[in-house]
């Protein structure tokens, strides 16, 4: 089975954004990301008061790598999966939970956000996002990218990577 593309758009995307927004409000977290297991950001929200986030590409990649390694460890030990992960430093923390087999929820929070709330609302959000992911996979959109896309992209390749 080829890894399916998880494509979020239209109403599903909006619902995912709403879930992230609510979760930020309920937990007091700084950033909320919905990330696929390959490490691509599907949707993200930042609290209005939060400072500029670190590069989200890097964050998503590392979280996905970490989650993949954790899952492999679980398998080695004969477990289907491990629970959510929380990493906590002195000021900042990271909450990662699985949202279906194909995606992850990531919350970045600081010491103003109570951990209990992060975990409680994080879990709920992950469950909702898991359902959204499954819906998205069940209804993949038709991609109307034609030869014109390929030709334009090729011109850009020349520009960026040289002739």
């Amino acid at each position: 089975m080829v890894e399916p593309s998880l494509v979020l758009y239209g109403a599903l995307y909006q619902r995912a954004m709403d879930v992230l927004q609510e979760t930020l409000q309920e937990t007091g977290a700084r950033y909320a990301l919905f990330v696929d297991r390959k490490g691509f950001v599907l949707a993200h929200k930042e609290a209005l008061w939060a400072p500029k986030p670190p590069p989200l590409d890097s964050l998503a990649t590392l979280v996905a790598g970490n989650a993949a390694a954790t899952q492999a460890l679980a398998k080695l030990l004969g477990e289907a999966r491990f629970q959510e992960v929380v990493h906590q430093g002195e000021r900042m923390g990271l909450y990662v939970d699985e949202a279906s087999e194909f995606a992850l929820l990531v919350l970045v929070f600081d010491d103003n956000a109570p951990l209990g709330k992060v975990k409680l609302h994080g879990k709920r959000a992950a469950e909702t996002l898991a359902r959204l992911a499954e819906e998205a996979l069940a209804n993949p959109p038709k991609l109307n990218l034609d030869t014109q896309y390929r030709e334009e992209a090729r011109a850009l390749l020349d520009e960026l990577f040289g002739n």
Binding site: S5, L6, L8, G10, L42, A43
Partner: peptide
Amino acid sequence: MSTINFANREINF
């Protein structure tokens, strides 16, 4: 396969 984000109009490889 490629990840497409219609909402942000992104295609990632």
